[in-house]
């Protein structure tokens, strides 16, 4: 995850409290989604950014996961995400995200 984004996630968590923050990802690959999810839960696995060694344990979802999709107006979702849903390997993204949440999510 981009170093500046890590800093922003960290700052928001301090400002609003970790239990009140949900991170929503839009990465196009399961592996990239997993890396970003791991960064905001267990800490930066690349040891490069402000979240290195910082386990925030935040709730984190990919925008294609049903937990997020079901919260959105279907027409808006189709307009904004419908095309990408056709393109992405949604099943492997969901599997990867669930695995990270089960291991590291604290909330």
């Amino acid at each position: 995850m981009d170093l500046e984004n890590q800093k922003r996630v960290k700052d928001f968590t301090e400002e609003f409290g970790p239990e009140n923050v949900i991170v929503i990802l839009g990465a196009s690959e399961a592996e990239a989604s997993g890396l970003a999810a791991e960064t905001v839960t267990n800490g930066d696995p690349t040891f490069a950014g402000p979240l290195t060694g910082v386990s925030l344990g935040l709730k984190v979802y990919h925008v294609c996961e049903p937990e997020i999709k079901d919260e959105v107006d279907p027409a808006v979702y189709d307009e904004q995400v419908g095309m990408m849903e056709m393109v992405l390997d949604v099943d492997s993204i969901i599997e990867e995200m669930k695995s990270i949440r089960e291991q590291y999510c604290k909330y």
């Binding site: 690959e29 990239a32 990408m84 056709m86 393109v87």
Partner: peptide, 20 residues
């Protein structure tokens, strides 16, 4: 690096829009 095949991802998006 986990960023996938970038041109292929673009072609999939163009194709998906053509379908839509």
């Amino acid at each position: 690096a986990g960023a996938g095949d970038v041109p292929l991802a673009n072609y999939k998006m163009i194709a998906a829009l053509a379908v839509k």
